[in-house]
Simulated assay, not measured.
Amino acid sequence: MTDELDLLREADPVSADTGPWRDRPLDARAELLLRRLPSRDRRRRTVRRRAVWSLGTAAAAAVVALALTVSGTGSSPAVAAPRPLPLVAHASRADVSLTEIARRARAAAVESPSKSERGSHFQSWALGMRSGRDAVTLPRESLTRWNADGSGSTLEVATDPRRPGRPVIEDGPPPRTVHDGKVLSEEHYPPGMNGANGDYFEDPPAGAPALRGYLAVWSPGADRDPADLLSAIRSFLTVWTPGPRQRADIVTLLSGIEGLRPAGEVTDRLGRQGQGFRFTGTPGSRYLIVLDPDDGGVLDIEETYTKDDPEYRVKAGDVMSYTAYMS
């Protein structure tokens, strides 16, 4: 209880001089502070998870990976995926600068100012670590779709670790699995819900500064720290599929990050060609962001270790986490 009270006192959405009995709407600052309360608590938990999964989660990942089977004659249980190799970037004369990608994204937004769509389709994995144990990777694919009446569904599948990058979910009404994989969760939401109980439930605003502020509501620090901004963009893209205007805004935010350097052309794990950019953030980690050079869409965000950590049996260059956005 002490932590919650401290958060409420720190937020102080109504100042002492407003009068104890006045009933009035909260101003914009108060709304922002109140919304940050649950997200700040989530961020604390997220930071701890980046260092080490809970014992229960790591054990569950191992069980799922070991239970995952491959269909066909002579099927045998699949083992936890080998640690994925980092994406490789190759510099060439055909490289497209971030400035040019931003220009193309803004031009595309003018030609087709369609809105972002709530819902996402992505593949991801992260290392599950326990002190003194080998890390476990659990590849997964997730598809979330929302309908006009606010109803929706989420399907999450553990993919075959021996076939990384192969899509296992077919988008459609309803979505279904099309390749080997173990369903981790499947949820259906009633009309009117429209994601209201999740993060980023409000429609994202237009304009890069406004989008930065919107991201900071859910990921405090995104309005001032580049690593937090990248983390917020990664999370946002697992909830929303950005339209041309939001794609341009995201690239504009990326172009303002000091230290984001061109890495070269990248072929991602889904076989797509993109332009890579590297950023060294918090000590011990480095980001690789892969963009579609034509419209600025974020294809992939990968985070790797930059130094060894013997306690968790990870080495510099190991992939910490990876997300490939499929729609």
Rank of each mutant, 00 (worst) to 15 (best):
Y189P: 02
A222S: 13
R212P: 01
A210R: 15
D223F: 05
D199K: 02
P226M: 08
E258A: 15
P204D: 08
S255C: 00
D223P: 06
G256A: 12
P190N: 07
M193Y: 15
A196Q: 15
A222K: 07
M193R: 11
W240Y: 09
W240C: 12
L260E: 02
L229Q: 11
G256Q: 12
L253A: 01
R234Q: 10
D223I: 03
T238R: 15
A263H: 06
Y200H: 09
V239A: 08
G207P: 10
S255R: 14
F201N: 09
V239R: 09
R245F: 00
Y200P: 02
A206N: 04
P244G: 05
D203L: 04
L230W: 09
L237M: 13
A248M: 04
S235M: 08
R261W: 00
E202G: 07
P190F: 04
A216H: 12
T238F: 02
R261S: 14
A232F: 03
P191L: 07
P205D: 09
L229H: 05
A216E: 13
A248E: 05
L253G: 00
A232G: 09
G195R: 08
W240V: 12
D203Y: 03
S231Q: 14
P226S: 05
E258V: 13
W240E: 09
D225R: 06
G243R: 06
A216R: 03
N197S: 14
G198Q: 14
P205R: 04
I233A: 01
R247L: 05
Q246Y: 00
R234Y: 00
D203P: 02
P244H: 00
S231N: 14
R245P: 00
G198P: 00
N194F: 14
G195M: 02
P242E: 07
A248H: 01
Q246A: 13
W218V: 01
L237S: 07
P209L: 01
D225H: 10
Y214T: 01
G259F: 05
G198I: 04
R261E: 15
F236E: 06
L253Y: 01
G192L: 06
P242N: 05
R212M: 13
A263E: 08
A263S: 15
T238S: 14
G213E: 15
A206I: 01
P226A: 11
D199E: 13
L254F: 09
S231V: 07
A232Q: 06
T241L: 05
N197A: 13
D223L: 07
A206V: 11
G221V: 02
P220A: 02
A248F: 08
G192H: 12
F236Y: 15
I257G: 11
G243Y: 06
Q246E: 15
G192Y: 10
L215W: 01
A227S: 15
F236N: 03
A222I: 02
D228N: 09
S255I: 00
A222F: 04
D249N: 10
L230V: 11
P220K: 07
I250W: 01
T241G: 07
G213Q: 13
R247D: 11
L229I: 06
G192I: 03
L237C: 10
V239T: 12
